[in-house]
């Protein structure tokens, strides 16, 4: 971690990234790579491919840092996380093996702790949605229920997720 940047504010960091400052780029990597890598591994549990995703994410971020300001996100990390998940999902889905179970190898993760407590249907919808990035239409087709039902189930799961988050990290 670069000591000269240790106390830089998020806005100052972004300004320096926009200018293409290599020190700022390194700092961004050092600060966020590990947290993002944890997320990527859950979505792409294969080391080489997870590494590829990381390289792609950071290369994209350095080139498109300006779009953060218009993204509607309040924190840099949330924006990075969103992009990371998007890219990881693109890498992860081998078409034709879309099964709601056996998606995750890490049984200890935060999200696992969350969804094991959910009723089966909520669990399945949440996993297909978060880990596979499937639309509610697709999920409805897979589970042979209506899209309205999927939306209801997902909303129940997200309600529970909100409660889980605020209970654990408040």
């Amino acid at each position: 971690m670069r000591r000269d940047l240790a106390h830089i504010s998020e806005q100052a960091l972004i300004d320096r990234l926009i200018l293409g400052d290599p020190a700022a780029r390194e700092f961004l990597y050092d600060r966020y790579a590990a947290a993002l890598y944890g997320v990527v591994l859950q979505l792409v549990p294969v080391k080489d491919r997870a590494s590829d995703v990381m390289v792609r994410v950071f290369t994209w971020v350095y080139l498109n840092i300006k779009s953060y300001q218009t993204s509607g996100y309040k924190t840099l990390f949330a924006w990075l996380l969103r992009k990371t998940r998007e890219m990881a999902i693109k890498e992860a889905i081998p078409e034709g093996s879309l099964i709601g179970t056996e998606l995750i190898r890490n049984e200890e993760g935060v999200l696992q702790r969350f969804y094991v407590r959910l009723p089966t249907a909520e669990q399945q919808v949440f996993r297909l949605c978060y880990f596979r990035g499937l639309s509610t239409t697709t999920i409805a087709r897979m589970m042979a229920i209506s899209e309205g039902q999927v939306n209801e189930i997902l909303e129940a799961a997200m309600k529970a997720f909100r409660k889980f988050l605020s209970d654990t990290w408040n």
Binding site: A34, Y37, G38, A50, S51, V55, F77, L81
Partner: peptide
């Protein structure tokens, strides 16, 4: 956003140096 950030940092995994 901050909550999710803290959650993600709780299970951070150091990527290989090669990355």
């Amino acid at each position: 956003e901050r909550r999710i950030e803290r959650a993600a940092f709780d299970e951070a995994v150091l990527p290989p140096a090669e990355v």
